[in-house]
Amino acid sequence: MHAVFRPPVNWRHRRFRYRLVVWRCLNCGAVHHYATSICRRCRSNRVAEDKLPDRARLITYTVVKNPPVAFEKQAPYIVGLVEFEDGTRLVAGITDCDPEELKPGIELEKVVRKIAEDGESGLIVYGYKFRPVITRSH
């Protein structure tokens, strides 16, 4: 099969994947994970760069037991739906916990983790995941 992780693609998305840099519609507030000049929700062209916060709440989650290519060795792993303060939702890997510890509504914090690697010789992909909060609020 074709390569799963192409360097230019991964590179292009790095700011979103590392820091949750998004493009937010100044009209309706919808966020986009890609650079855009048209809001996907309201079609406004007033879109500006923004950053999602590092904290979010868990809405629901599941476990991937049948993994896709490049994730074989990580299975089983948790993925969850999280919601930020502004209502933006994101599906992300949930790490450093067992499914039993997760309850809807718990607070999670963003970390950057190794997402996958393209075999022994290919690219290593890093990106956001969420985990139960260990840092202090300040």
Binding site: V9, H13, H33, Y34, V64, P67, P68, F71, V91, A116
Partner: peptide, 10 residues
């Protein structure tokens, strides 16, 4: 893919 597939979300 750039939002979900890349991180193994099936």
């Amino acid at each position: 893919y750039d939002l979900l597939g890349f991180q193994g979300v099936t």
